[in-house]
């Protein structure tokens, strides 16, 4: 590998890692703060991608679709929390797994009924459809760089929200001691509903952003679900900062694994997970 290729592979790693972070951040919020094992998280990613496809066919503009899609996903998340997830907080993890697994099946079947099983594509917005030449024959699509920038901005935004705002303070408190927060007169139900809806909106946003480059196809949700859990576990459950670092680690492991150790590429991600967990069983950034 020459130096230019190496630099481009580093860029690939960063870009892939940031996209993974976007999917995993919603999961780490819901899992870490609310204690819910949400297997349906990948389905929200899929819902987002199909939403982008449907709305773009209607409006003809991906950015407008995303602007419409985020509030839709947020409301959808709030409704789901109210109807189903709010009954799960006091229950066993096994029941959470059962419900969220059931949701995966329902979402897949609904998708099949409503949109069918064909593969669909979403066009990249005109504004970002250019490519930047990197070497004599390889160029980099601007849209991928835009995604990376959006992911970084979101990471910053989430950090600010959770560490620096009053809502963030309540969220952090709620994750430590639900009953104490309630005793202090904070509406914990509303708080949890917001966090859950935020998690769903993040997953859907990831799906919408990824739709033009990944295409939209059946089963796309389950492919990101496992890697998201790996990231949440490596990063330390509930830590947004940890999820970012873990996503980047996985991005590098996957990219360089494919290039340097092609025979072990499928194993790379899990090897990294095993090593990290041996070193820090609670994940890199587990607090208290």
């Amino acid at each position: 590998m020459d130096f230019v290729s190496f630099l481009i592979q580093v860029l690939n790693s960063l870009q892939y890692g940031l996209l993974l972070f976007l999917v995993a951040s919603g999961l780490t919020l819901v899992f870490g703060i609310m204690g819910i094992i949400n297997l349906a998280h990948g389905s929200f990613y899929m819902v987002g991608a199909y939403l982008a496809f449907a709305l773009t066919s209607l409006t003809g503009n991906l950015m407008l679709s995303i602007a419409l899609g985020i509030p839709l996903a947020f409301v959808f998340g709030a409704l789901l929390e109210w109807a189903l997830f709010s009954h799960l907080y006091k229950r066993d993890h096994l029941e959470q797994v059962l419900l969220t697994y059931g949701l995966i099946l329902i979402f897949e079947e609904l998708r099949s009924l409503m949109v069918g099983d064909d593969v669909h594509g979403v066009t990249i917005p005109e504004l970002f459809s250019a490519s930047i030449p990197l070497s004599d024959n390889l160029s980099y699509p601007v849209y991928r760089l835009v995604i990376s920038v959006v992911c970084l901005a979101l990471a910053g935004g989430l950090y600010f929200l959770i560490q620096k705002t009053r809502l963030g303070m309540m969220i952090r408190a709620g994750s430590h001691d639900r009953d104490m927060v309630k005793a202090l007169g904070i509406d914990i139900n509303l708080l949890y509903r917001t966090v859950f809806a935020l998690g769903v909106a993040l997953a859907a946003l990831a799906g919408m952003l990824a739709a033009p480059i990944s295409s939209v196809y059946p089963g796309m949700g389950s492919s990101v679900l496992i890697i998201s859990f790996v990231i949440v576990v490596i990063g330390g459950v509930g830590s947004v900062w940890g999820a970012l670092v873990a996503a980047l680690v996985i991005g590098f492991a996957d990219t360089f694994g494919k290039v340097l150790l092609p025979d072990l590429a499928g194993l790379m991600v899990y090897l990294v997970m095993a090593v990290v967990l041996l070193w820090r069983p609670e994940g890199i950034f587990k607090k208290g």
């Binding site: 020459d2 390889l138 295409s215």
Partner: peptide, 29 residues
């Protein structure tokens, strides 16, 4: 797995005359 970017980078640096692939469905797209 459909994260092809590392391979595209490698193909660009190997500079072959042509590329042959098998993919289907979402991966093909």
């Amino acid at each position: 797995n459909v994260e092809f970017q590392p391979f595209l980078t490698e193909i660009a640096s190997l500079k072959p005359d042509a590329v042959f692939v098998f993919f289907a469905g979402g991966g093909a797209v």
